[in-house]
Structures are given as C-alpha cells and as structure tokens.
Simulated assay, not measured.
Amino acid sequence: MSDETPEPVKRLFFALNCPPEQRKAIAQWRSALQSRNGRPVPAENFHLTLLFLGAVGVAQIAEICTAAAKVRVPGVALRVALDRLDVWRRAGVLVLAPEQAPPELLRLVYALEQAMLPFGFEETPKEFRPHLTLMRDYRAPVPESATPPGFFLRADRFALFESHKGRYRALAEWPLVPA
C-alpha cells in the first residue's frame, strides 16, 4: 500500500463570462421557448468556453495562469453574435451559437491551445465550436422561437474557471485589451 494521497484536482476551463444583464435577457428568451425537454443551465453559469482543460492538479494552476497571462490577446473587446439556436445531439445540449465566429475569437482560442500544449491536457484537441449552453440532457428537435436569437456576448477579458458541484467560479482573469 502506498501512503501517497492523490493530488487534489480541480475541473478547469477557460471561458468568456456572460455579463449579468445579458444572462437575464438570454434566460428570459429561453423561457419563452417553453421547452419541456432537458434541464435548463442556471443563468449564472452562462459562458462561452474557449478551452476545456478537465481535471488539473492544484499544483499546476499557478503555472497555467502564468502561461495564460502570456497569451497574445486580440487587443480589442470581443463581440460574439449568438444568433443561431442549435441542438448538439451527441452531447444532448441545446445551444446558442454564432452563425460566424469572429476571427479574433478563433485566434485567441488557438493561442490558448498553444500555450497549454506543454501541460499535455489533451492529445487531440476537439474542433472549437463556440457556443453558450442553454439546456443539458436535451433530446428534442430545435424548438421554434417567436423571436430569433439576436444576442451579442461582449467580453473585455477571459477567465480560468473552476467547475465545482454545478457551480462555476473564476479563479483568474486576463484583459483582452492590454492596459
């Protein structure tokens, strides 16, 4: 028997946070869909994931933050249109996604992926598909909407979040526009 206790880990991801007034507007729009399917994501958890890291040893967090701080940022606040309602069947989620992802967003994600390579989180990074998850365990067609989604997620910073018991908490954040 080994006396070593397993290293504590946290489930981490990089994301753009959704501002409170926007969360409220999206949540109201979602409730107007009157979908009886799936579990609604709490509005306070609305975000746009940039890069999912998964289980990370607590000891590595400081190094990850140092690497993230060196990422080349767009130099402008991001404005991501969330103008398409979609169902991702395999994941079982109802999402808001952009019809067209802004190039600055794609460059930021690529820079983050490159910065995280030395940590060896994921051998094969998944194709980045920007989205905001509205419902989980969703097993129905795309619901009809009286008003099409016309949201813009505005972000002037990106953050490293911890997912713990269904709650998301920002551990650190970095400006997208250098001071």
Rank of each mutant, 00 (worst) to 15 (best):
A69T: 04
E7S: 14
D156W: 00
P40Q: 13
V58H: 11
L105K: 11
R167W: 00
E7K: 12
F121V: 03
S2I: 05
P103Y: 04
R136L: 10
R23G: 05
L171F: 06
E122A: 12
E21W: 02
A81R: 10
G166Y: 09
L171T: 03
F151Q: 08
A101T: 05
I64C: 08
E173I: 00
P130I: 01
C18W: 01
M1G: 13
L16E: 09
R107W: 05
E44R: 14
A15K: 03
N37I: 04
F13E: 07
A146I: 04
E122R: 15
L48N: 05
A170K: 03
E162Q: 15
R39F: 00
Q100H: 11
L112Y: 00
H164P: 00
P130F: 06
D137F: 05
A97K: 08
L160T: 01
C18Q: 07
I64T: 04
L176V: 07
L96S: 08
R157Y: 03
G57R: 15
H164F: 10
F151E: 08
T5D: 04
P42L: 11
A159P: 00
L53Q: 07
S35I: 04
E162D: 11
R90E: 12
N45P: 01
V58S: 13
R169W: 06
H47V: 08
A91H: 08
V87C: 12
A155V: 10
G166E: 08
T49E: 07
P125D: 10
R79E: 15
Q22S: 13
H47D: 11
F161Y: 15
I26S: 09
P141R: 11
F158Y: 14
F52E: 08
L96M: 07
P125A: 10
E162T: 02
V95C: 14
D86Y: 01
R169V: 09
I61Q: 12
S2P: 10
P74S: 12
V95F: 02
L50F: 10
P102L: 14
L96Q: 05
F158I: 01
P102K: 12
L12T: 05
L171E: 08
C65Y: 00
E99A: 15
P74N: 14
A77F: 00
A170V: 06
C18I: 01
Y138E: 07
E113K: 11
T49Y: 01
F14D: 09
V71Y: 04
G75Q: 05
T133M: 08
E44T: 07
A115C: 09
R154M: 03
Q34L: 07
E4Y: 00
L108M: 13
Q114N: 13
L51I: 00
S35K: 05
K165R: 13
M1E: 12
R30D: 14
L171K: 11
Q100T: 14
A91Y: 00
E122H: 12
F52Q: 09
F13W: 03
W174I: 10
F52R: 02
P125F: 03
Y110M: 12
P19Q: 12
L96A: 10
F151M: 07
R84K: 15
Y168L: 14
H131S: 02
V73P: 04
L12P: 05
T66E: 14
A159R: 05
E113L: 00
D156R: 06
A62G: 13
M116Y: 02
E127G: 06
P175C: 13
